[in-house]
Design a protein around this nucleic acid. Structure first.
Lengths: 209, 190
DNA sequence: GCTTTAAAAAGTAACAT
DNA sequence: ATGTTACTTTGAAAAGC
């Protein structure tokens, strides 16, 4: 009986140590990303739930915590790219993505709950690019038009928003380069260019610059 | 009834496990396999490729094999016969006929209609859609067990099925769901 | 869990020219 | 700025770490 007792203590010790480590890792990521307190709390809630359901097995605590941070951002509509999280977490993007998809499946985080409007990304990227409200509005119009014409399905939302902002910045006379826009959206210039070409072509935009 | 008349499926790959019921000395087997690779350090089996039929075989010392890349069950049977003949020349004795089990079949296909994947993911239960990471909707069918990747073009990939019939059945179930949630009508907005 | 095999879908990325 | 090649996702088995 004593042995059983000791092993229980050991187990709870390990569980507590893991939780403490996970929460400190969460704190580190949240503060570096300057996330609102409620996002950090949501991520912690998701992590505890994932642990309770045994979803951590076979996955590193770090990748799951990073995945919970990303999921919390999505659920609370705080735009943050997976790349930004991968930069500070010490697991690669691929691993975080796998953990994210796994917890999303098992905690019933449906595409609907996780959906973040392109508008939110427009504002985030525009903030970082110092673009005006006029440019943002124009970019959003372009994105709605593109969506209605079936040009967005399957494409990277970040790439689409980047291209829309690039075009809007040209149209409104607040030009940003493809490189600048690609950098904040965390996509390559080639992606911005490809989306840009398609939007200009299929939406019949005339850009004379 | 679901309209499957425009749906197309094409076999792309078949994976089978095979038991030859004979232990194999891989050091001898490598000698008779032209283009083969064997690094026990990184992988315990010999990786062997045939041009006709065009398949890749993983040969293990237990006498078990994995045959991949085949486009038909017959290709797998021919590949196994070919290997058995090669092994016979090396003196391997066979007590009984090899047992072949189809483990996985991969199909590419087309539903014949375009989809707004955001709309699909919004209402289709048990699906995944993360366009930032992968352009298709991932839909898991319970029975028969299979997974279908649905792209905005209407093209699909079905994997995990153990027979062509199961693959068609899985696609039929996906279409039933799409129809049930009103995603089949040409809701293409122009 | 990982290692190795094959193949498609469509998108994005990496590196070369 | 293009073009090529390569990688993302799905599935399963093999023997062993």
């Amino acid at each position: 009986r004593l042995r059983k007792w000791q092993s229980r203590l050991r187990v709870s010790d390990a569980a507590e140590r893991n939780l403490a480590f996970a929460l400190s890792e969460l704190d580190r990521i949240a503060s570096q990303l300057k996330l609102p307190k409620h996002v950090e709390e949501e991520a912690a809630r998701l992590y505890r739930e994932a642990v309770r359901r045994g979803l951590i097995r076979g996955r590193s605590i770090e990748s799951v915590i990073a995945a919970c941070v990303y999921a919390a951002c999505r659920l609370l509509k705080i735009p943050r790219t997976l790349d930004e999280i991968a930069d500070i977490a010490r697991v690669d993007k691929k691993e975080i993505g796998r953990s994210f998809r796994f917890i999303a499946r098992n905690l019933n985080l449906t595409p609907k709950k996780l959906f973040v409007k392109p508008t939110d990304y427009v504002n985030k990227f525009a903030d970082e690019l110092g673009l005006s409200e006029k440019v943002r509005r124009r970019a959003i119009e372009l994105l709605e038009e593109a969506y209605n014409r079936g040009l967005t399905s399957g494409k990277s939302p970040a790439g689409l928003v980047a291209a829309a902002l690039y075009i809007a910045s040209l149209l409104e006379g607040e030009k940003r380069t493809q490189r600048e826009v690609a950098e904040v959206a965390r996509v390559t210039e080639v992606t911005v260019r490809n989306r840009y070409k398609e939007l200009v072509e299929k939406l019949g935009l005339k850009i004379t610059l | 009834m679901v309209d499957m008349s425009k749906v197309k499926l094409r076999i792309e790959n078949i994976v089978a496990s095979v038991d030859l019921f004979t232990q194999l000395d891989l050091e001898k087997v490598i000698e008779i396999c032209p283009n083969s690779k064997y690094n026990p350090e990184e992988f315990p089996g010999i990786i062997c490729r045939f041009d006709e039929p065009k398949v890749a075989l993983l040969v293990f010392s237990s006498g078990k094999l994995v045959v991949t890349g085949a486009k038909s069950v017959e290709d797998i049977e021919r590949a196994v016969s070919k290997l058995v003949q090669m092994l016979s020349k090396i003196g391997t004795k066979f007590q009984r006929a090899p047992q072949i089990d189809i483990q996985n079949m991969v199909f590419s296909g087309d539903i014949g209609m375009e989809f707004n994947l955001d709309a699909v993911a919004l209402v289709l239960p048990n699906c995944e859609y993360e366009p930032e990471q992968f352009p298709g909707v991932i839909y898991r069918v319970k029975e028969p067990r299979a997974v279908i990747l649905l792209f905005s073009s209407g093209k699909i990939v079905c994997s995990g099925a153990k027979s062509e019939h199961d693959a068609w059945e899985a696609v039929r179930k996906l279409l039933r769901e799409l129809e049930k949630y009103g995603l089949i009508e040409e809701e293409e907005e122009f």
